[in-house]
Design a protein around this nucleic acid. Structure first.
Lengths: 151, 151
DNA sequence: TTGCTCCTCACGTCACGTGAGGTGGC
DNA sequence: TTGCTCCTCACGTCACGTGAGGTGGC
């Protein structure tokens, strides 16, 4: 970053961000409205929103948890808190924090990840059951189909 | 069934049915309203709805597909059509149908089951990715946690 | 300058939740 | 007869979809 570099507006606009995250602009605006996503960095009223790769990754993550685990947007807010803690650690904002604080953050983060892993395993079990039932049905239909002969 | 047996009203009421299916009475009424479930057998206006074990199983199946595969109620109507065909076969209502008709029904049923299986596999793949990511995060947090020492 | 995408209301929709007021069956 | 559950409206809510009318940036 050279000294004369202007405070370049970084990031893509909402349409591109939405497409990359696999959703719509309206959804991103709505998530911002209810506080699930931060209001785009110091944006003036009426100005265009800009999103970095990290922002987009965050939207993807939210959608994944919502769709795969069936979490409500309200439940996702809890997840977001843990994500925020993770960002803090990652950016070393807390490198001057006490070990006790770091431990507390890591413990909360671990608790959250473990909770999500438990949900994942439950879902997988349910999916396994569904697949077993479908496979049984398929086998039966195939047998009956064969008894009728070809075409 | 003895001759003097009254035309006993069979089945449980909506509250019990909903609990057994893992949902609410309102949901069952709503599904009936939009035509996802048949209007309870010749029910007079204002009378109580009654549900058999088969009815309840059907509700469970709908909820499972909706929640696990993320299908809309509109998409579930397509599934229901195939389910209806299955019921016809099961009850042998079509034992006097031509082989051609039977083949057509079975083929449609197989197509539907295969479609659902494809969705199941896609979901499982997505779940696997999510789990991998969560596990990686967990490992990293655990390592950092250890570096800080106990308690 | 012309398109295109963006902006903010604001009403519509899907899948129910939640009373309000009344009726039915063990 | 007393509870309890059921009934039908009908309005509320969550998570967006969908224009309506206007402004901004390559």
């Amino acid at each position: 970053v050279t000294p004369q570099a202007a405070p370049a507006k970084e990031g893509v606009r909402i349409g591109s961000a939405a497409k990359q995250a696999g959703t719509t602009a309206r959804t991103i605006r709505y998530y911002e409205e209810i506080g699930l996503l931060p209001s785009s960095n110091g944006r003036a009223g009426g100005a265009h929103r800009l999103y970095t790769e990290d922002d987009i990754e965050r939207v993807r993550e939210l959608l994944r948890l919502k769709n795969l685990l069936g979490l409500s947007l309200d439940e996702l807010k809890t997840v977001i808190e843990a994500e925020n803690a993770r960002e803090h650690l990652k950016a070393r904002f807390l490198s001057d924090a006490s070990d006790e604080e770091k431990r507390a953050i890591l413990d909360k983060l671990l608790e959250n990840v473990d909770h999500q892993l438990a949900l994942v395993n439950r879902r997988r079990k349910d999916l396994d059951e569904l697949e077993a039932d479908l496979t049984t049905r398929r086998r039966r239909a195939m047998r009956r189909r064969r008894e009728l002969g070809d075409q």
